[in-house]
């Protein structure tokens, strides 16, 4: 096929969390603009495997921009150059023949590298376990339409709930702050009537867990919002701060 590109990749390779890593250069030749970024890496990996070399490890699963598993800092930007797009949905037509592309893992103390481009994001799990739920059990709940919710409220909660938990916000932030992620989760429940009974306790528990995980503070540079593939708004952070403040107020 024609119209294909030849690229140079500088990829972070690291055997495991305890071995230091380094950049290794690879050629990616004959790349179609219709390929996704991960399909381009698949092609490079096929070549490596044929030479019985270890393929470049990266996380991915749905390849549809929804599971939040893919990551990659591409030329310094989490999820690459295209706004509102995950790495798996980024296509090679966003690059030009002859480009050099630098590929790194998420960089944050709270997301240690596991291998190559794969990181450990379990800190996000623990934050959600700390309070990201409504404490009801299966069965014995009211009929769904007994909880009317004004459409604008429901829509606003939905836009917070769209977060895919990828961690790009953390990777984008010079302080490695997780505020955008955590605030999106807190906001969904703070907005909905179902979330009211535990509203403040939840905000407090999740914020404390976030701090415990070693994420940095927010200094309002909004890099997170710019890189978020789901366009989660920084207004969520303001809401979270208010929720946390009120939680402390109620306690005192």
């Amino acid at each position: 096929m024609s119209g294909h590109m030849n690229l140079t990749l500088k990829v972070w390779r690291q055997k495991n969390s305890t071995t230091p890593g380094k950049f290794v250069t690879y050629k990616a030749n004959d790349i179609s603009p219709d390929m996704s970024f991960l399909e381009m890496l698949d092609v490079v990996n096929e070549d490596l495997v044929k030479k019985t070399e270890d393929p470049i490890h990266f996380d991915h699963d749905c390849r549809e921009g929804i599971c939040g598993m893919c990551s990659l800092v591409i030329n310094g930007e989490p999820h690459g150059p295209k706004r509102a797009t995950t790495t798996c949905q980024l296509h090679m037509r966003s690059f030009a023949d002859g480009d050099t592309i630098v590929i790194e893992p998420w960089r944050a103390a709270a997301f240690p590298v596991v291998k190559d481009l794969v990181t450990n994001r379990s800190a996000f799990e623990r934050i959600q376990q700390a309070g990201g739920y409504v404490s009801i059990s299966t069965g014995g709940v009211p009929d769904a339409n007994e909880i009317p919710i004004p459409k604008p409220v429901a829509d606003e909660a939905f836009s917070s709930a769209e977060c895919i938990g990828c961690g790009a916000c953390v990777a984008a932030c010079k302080n490695a702050s997780a505020m955008l992620f955590v605030s999106a989760k807190i906001s969904q429940y703070a907005l909905l009537p179902q979330g009211q009974p535990e509203r403040y306790a939840r905000a407090e528990a999740m914020v404390l867990q976030m701090d415990e995980e070693g994420f940095g503070g927010c200094t309002n540079t909004y890099a997170c919002e710019a890189q978020c593939p789901k366009e989660i708004k920084v207004t969520n952070i303001a809401r979270m701060n208010r929720e946390f403040f009120n939680a402390e107020l109620i306690k005192s």
């Binding site: 709940v141 769904a144 909880i147 004004p150 429901a154 709930a161």
Partner: peptide
């Protein structure tokens, strides 16, 4: 069950 958990299903203007 899902609504009670806070799943934000699509709604009409009447809520």
């Amino acid at each position: 069950q899902c609504v009670a958990q806070g799943v934000p299903f699509a709604r009409e203007y009447g809520g």
